[in-house]
């Protein structure tokens, strides 16, 4: 693979229009699963990024308010491994609408009831995204781990029982997952589970981290060049309106946290300048029109 340095000279640069979406790598790269397609290679022993404490998050929330943030997202790893997670959510919801990306395994009935009370208490939306990669154990479990299909469905049921309706997030590890008929199968699965208003989001895979081992890394040609710039600019890319906070500072986006050069600064104010789209994963966002947000 050609070095990032070599491609930097010709890479287009994307300006931050506004800070609409602020992400927190709240569980670091620590997860109770080790999915074979995880672009940040999260696992029980991956401490590349550590948990974010409430204390570490608060100054970022204050700064986000000054910058006019529109929405907050929490991901990992598995966010609910963070012992402070529910307190963090309570504080986040004072600032704006909040979404948690979870694998659903730690969503027991009691926690779901607490989350539901939290959702009712605030003026802003509290939303959940539960990941699933196939509509059967045979397709899901080889990616996410043995027995996970059943456990994910239980988590989803518990949320729904508590009055929370998560968005099921599916990656295109199987091409069919994103097709109209694939989507319909997920909708059916959810309806069978008693979800009256099923919600779904499909994302492409990023050929980095564990996924690079599973299906191969990016090819040298999968890079953005200045000539790729559209007339309307780069506003379709989430990095034109987001930043990501980890325990080690502020990164450009949720995808590049394991790439030290994705780090832009320590405080949000350090990261308001343009970012060079030199990483092959930037190519995926552009070509597939990806936005990590819901």
């Amino acid at each position: 693979m050609p070095s990032i340095e070599a491609s930097k000279a010709t890479s287009p640069r994307v300006a931050l229009r506004s800070l609409d979406t602020l992400w927190f790598q709240v569980a670091g790269t620590v997860c109770n699963l080790a999915c074979t397609h995880c672009f940040v290679s999260s696992s029980p022993t991956n401490r590349t990024h550590e948990f974010l404490s409430l204390e570490a998050i608060l100054p970022y929330l204050e700064e986000a308010v000054i910058l006019g943030v529109k929405e907050l997202y929490f991901t990992g790893g598995e966010p609910f491994l963070n012992p402070e997670m529910e307190t963090i959510l309570e504080r986040a919801l004072r600032v704006g609408p909040t979404t948690v990306l979870t694998n659903g395994l730690l969503l027991d009935p009691e926690r779901c009831r607490r989350l539901s009370r939290l959702a009712e208490k605030t003026d802003y939306s509290l939303d959940f995204r539960v990941s699933m990669d196939g509509y059967s154990p045979e397709t899901n479990d080889p990616i996410r781990g043995e027995g996970t299909f059943e456990r994910i469905l239980r988590g989803v049921s518990n949320l729904v029982e508590a009055g929370l309706n998560p968005v099921i997030t599916v990656t295109e590890v199987y091409e069919d997952n994103g097709s109209a008929s694939g989507k319909e199968r997920f909708f059916e699965l959810l309806r069978d589970l008693g979800v009256a208003k099923p919600r779904l989001k499909v994302l492409p895979v990023f050929q980095i981290g564990a996924e690079a081992e599973r299906s191969g890394a990016y090819e040298a040609w999968q890079r953005l060049r200045d000539s790729d710039t559209l007339d309307e600019g780069w506003s379709h890319l989430q990095c034109s309106s987001c930043r990501m906070v980890t325990d080690q500072g502020v990164w450009v986006c949720p995808i590049l946290v394991n790439e030290p050069r994705g780090k832009m600064g320590q405080a949000l104010a350090d990261t308001l300048e343009p970012f060079a789209l030199e990483h092959p994963a930037c190519w995926t966002c552009h070509v597939y029109g990806v936005s990590c947000k819901t």
Partner: peptide, 17 residues
């Protein structure tokens, strides 16, 4: 392979690939 994945990161970080 699966149990290997759970422990490969002991003391290690993922940096790109």
């Amino acid at each position: 392979a699966e149990s290997g994945k759970l422990t490969t990161h002991r003391g290690m970080a993922t940096w790109g690939e």
